[in-house]
Design a protein around this nucleic acid. Structure first.
Lengths: 94, 94
DNA sequence: TTTACTCATCGTAAATTTACGATAGTTAAT
DNA sequence: ATTAACTATCGTAAATTTACGATGAGTAAA
């Protein structure tokens, strides 16, 4: 990956991490490994649609992935991109 | 620092890093150690006011600091907060 | 004091983000 | 086929972000 794309990817990941709710969702996914939207709606004082929106952004950034488990959707961390983000932040700060 | 403040700090740092221009500014400061606003205006195809705005956000996030060097202002990385951010991201991804 | 230089701030417009309630879609069970 | 459960999407309003040009503030030199 060239420098330009690295920078764009890093900005993309940083944006995904730039909201406390999304950080908390990721933190929760780290502990639980996976969870459903409804679990998060119970935890956070936010509407279901708002949680869904945050999940969508995390998914678009590549940090999580949704696995169909009808009628639920099980969200997990996307380890590949997660580790890529880890490396990019690490490189950036070193 | 407790978990709540850590999360807020991390979100704040992530937000500062969430724009490619700001990433590039920080990258440049890493290499040059310091620079002036005018230097950045020459490098980036953006108005001076826009650069100044990005610098203000980086300063508010604590990642850089401005040192008066009249009539210029020399911007440098704030090593204390920089390292704090580094640790927070590192902790988050581990 | 005037001029020149550097940078911040103001005012503003367009785009994006964040939140909500309401609605639609999907699948399993009845 | 209907219903129930779970989640995404739509529509929308308020807030924030990003960009610009214009203006203002501060200092050094003439």
């Amino acid at each position: 990956m060239d420098t330009i794309n690295e920078s764009e990817s890093l900005a993309k990941y940083a944006k995904a991490l730039s909201h406390p709710t999304r950080l908390a969702i990721l933190k929760h996914l780290e502990n639980q490994s996976c969870c459903y939207t409804a679990d998060l709606v119970e935890i956070f004082p936010l509407a279901q649609s708002t949680i869904s929106q945050h999940l969508k952004e995390l998914k678009n950034a590549g940090l999580i992935q949704g696995e169909l488990n009808p009628p639920k959707i099980k969200y997990c961390i996307n380890l590949t991109h997660w580790q890529q983000a880890q490396v990019l932040f690490q490189q950036f700060f070193s």
